[in-house]
Design a protein around this nucleic acid. Structure first.
Lengths: 392, 392
DNA sequence: TCCTATTGGTTGCATAATACAACCAACCAT
DNA sequence: ATGGTTGGTTGTATTATGCAACCAATAGGA
């Protein structure tokens, strides 16, 4: 006697447990509209893979009955490395399947004298042992880069701060150097901020929000005289990170932008350099930014705004300004329902989110192809393509 | 001997044929990654339902081989009614499954003296015979309304022009009056514009675009002294119409909006009234609108802008302004790739799109539930829930 | 304390969707 | 004609899932 199991529903069950730790088999069968015997078999398979375990026994209902067995994803099934590379620093984090950060490291990096991909390969080689010292196998790597990234092909298409205007075959080159056994996913840095909010918010997973990432950096890696605020947006729409037709979604420039400047607002570059050192400049930027964010909140009907990066210093003023403009920009009498908050992850938001992005793709139901090309990012595969025969 | 067939793949096959008329069975099997025998059986079932037919025989390849049988959806399998209701007029269209308009009618409507839902019921009763006179059964109705609409529950949540600030149970009331046999779907008018672009663009189906709907109307139905331009946006992101958390996505108000006015821009209401009669006002509105559209194009990385409604009169200037601002608002050296065009459907764009929305839902693969509540709009069902036994 | 109703979970079997392989049909080129 | 090639069909094997009957464990009452 043997039981057989399908791909899609395995992933659905795994994802259900991941999103909602403590679910019982019957809970899952009700949630996913599957027969409880089917769920039993799938859970048995996932237990055999050692990715799901029986965590606790819940309480029986008021009218009696057997107590449910609460399931959870095993935190130590594997670990994921998250990397953020900026123009002058990089950050590495290691997380387990529950999203707990057990390792983190930030260090200066000078991309004027080193190649982007080579630096990344070096970082992975250097920190992989630290992660695997926990005994958990490294199951994948997520990377956040400034610039716009095609996560499907794993390519950096262009980057202003990194001065890359031709495609860089990031994943391909890294995989050649590091071997194929570890899948690598790449995305834009602000989008990684979004992934971080998505991956471990489980029950309260927001469906529509914007991640506002402000970095204080040199205009390009070659210029080392002054730093200005560089702003990138990451958008989650209908539960998914939005990339756009050419993967450049999130690139921000004010509606009032003045031709000839390098900053993204309607101020002069001389003013932009005084950001964080001149109250008047701060106020102008905050007002202009808040208006644009408010516009997006209303036009896209976002339920949430998350602020990350050094903007956090001005968070109180910014939050107040956004809140005011959202309401002013709204034509109906009701109050707009939109939470505005600061990312609690601080410096690590992007690297952490990059790792979260990997998990999110690992535990994702394969998209049922309806038309042309499938859009699954390059090669994350949890399970063998066809069912396995199980002993009773 | 009997063959059995699944729900999901029936819809996938039907959708493939619908999106790509002239596909052969092998084409489908390659496209959807199904075995050709499976496709044969499913196509047989769809032929039996008389929704798919063998249309023509294609040419054999250069290296010989049997000639492929090209399939297509039968245009006359049924017809769909599309309705647009505005503050002062309504429009009805009838289309077949290929999207050909075989009936259309526009007429004044005074919602000051008639209830919205009652008027709709009346419209359906009055025009249903005209559609069914073709011999095709009426399989569904799509409705476009100004205001924001929850298409899942079929409810008008609020509408400025209709002066509705409480929920109207549109579908529920209409269904009670008209009977359950005809499913009804509702959405916002600008969103219906999007559905029209989606439903029948088949091969060149755009994945990310904005539909700019400008209506010249009274500020509210009660005020009959003057008309101003009312602008609504419809957004398609990653191939799907975007509604947002509370279904209010697309509500537009300028970043420079002045508190106290009823128009959506930074001009005074006195100026707004001179729209289309004063070149200076036109120029101000065009510039301000173009900047906002350009901002959205870049931030969301849209591949297309479609202009509908009476704005069409100023289309040339508007298109030029949008094009200019898109490029000005873009930081990288390359040209932004974004088509800007005017909806060819003119007056009928919304009603036609409403009908298209219905078809799009009819021929849509059921979403595999991964978490909580399913988001399929109320009751469109093409097929019996379980497989049917077929004779050989 | 024992019975009953109730809920969670498992097992053997039935059902049904899909793949596989072998076939036929129709076309090209030589 | 003949063989190579592609499209489509048919019988059979595989396997995911549902169903119904079962066991396990609980609450509440008699």
């Amino acid at each position: 006697m043997a039981h057989y199991i399908s791909d899609v529903n395995i992933t659905r069950v795994l994802r259900a447990v991941w999103l909602n730790q403590g679910l019982s088999r019957v809970d899952i069968s009700r949630l996913l509209d599957l027969n409880k015997s089917t769920v039993s078999k799938i859970v048995g398979y996932l237990e055999e893979l050692r990715i799901v375990e029986q965590a606790a026994v819940g309480d029986a209902g008021p009218s009696g009955g057997r107590r449910p067995i609460q399931l959870q994803v095993r935190a130590d099934w594997g670990c994921v490395m998250g990397v953020e590379i900026q123009t002058e620093t990089f950050t590495v984090v290691g997380i387990n399947l529950h999203g707990d950060v057990f390792f983190s490291h930030t260090e200066p990096l000078d991309l004027r004298h080193a190649d982007l991909v080579d630096s990344f390969i070096e970082i992975v080689r250097r920190f992989r042992p630290s992660l695997e010292a926990t005994g958990m196998p490294l199951i994948g790597i997520g990377v956040g880069l400034p610039g716009f990234v095609d996560p499907v092909r794993g390519v950096l298409r262009a980057s202003m701060p990194l001065e890359q205007y031709d495609e860089v075959a990031f994943v391909e080159r890294a995989r050649d150097a590091l071997g194929v056994e570890i899948p690598i996913l790449v995305d834009n840095d602000a989008n990684c901020g979004c992934w971080g909010e998505l991956a471990f918010k489980h029950s309260t997973r927001p469906q529509n929000f914007v991640f506002v990432l402000g970095e204080l950096r040199k205009h390009t890696i070659e210029m080392d005289d002054y730093r200005i605020m560089a702003l990138g947006l990451g958008l989650v729409l209908d539960g998914d990170v939005h990339h756009g037709t050419e993967y450049s979604a999130g690139e921000f420039r004010s509606i009032l932008y003045r031709v000839g400047t390098v900053n993204q607002f309607s101020i002069s570059d001389a003013e932009a350099r005084r950001f964080l050192r001149d109250k008047d400049v701060d106020a102008m930027i905050i007002d202009e930014l808040a208006r644009h964010i408010a516009f997006l909140v209303n036009v896209l009907n976002l339920g949430k705004v998350v602020i990350g990066g050094p903007m956090e210093i001005l968070a109180d003023e910014l939050i107040a300004a956004i809140r005011e403009h959202i309401q002013q920009n709204w034509a109906y009498p009701n109050m707009v329902d939109c939470q505005i908050s600061v990312s609690r992850l601080g410096e690590q938001a992007v690297a952490y989110g990059a790792a979260g992005m990997f998990l999110e793709h690992l535990i994702r139901v394969p998209s049922v192809r309806t038309d042309r090309d499938p859009t699954a990012p390059c090669g994350v595969e949890l399970l063998p393509r066809h069912g396995t025969e199980l002993p009773v």
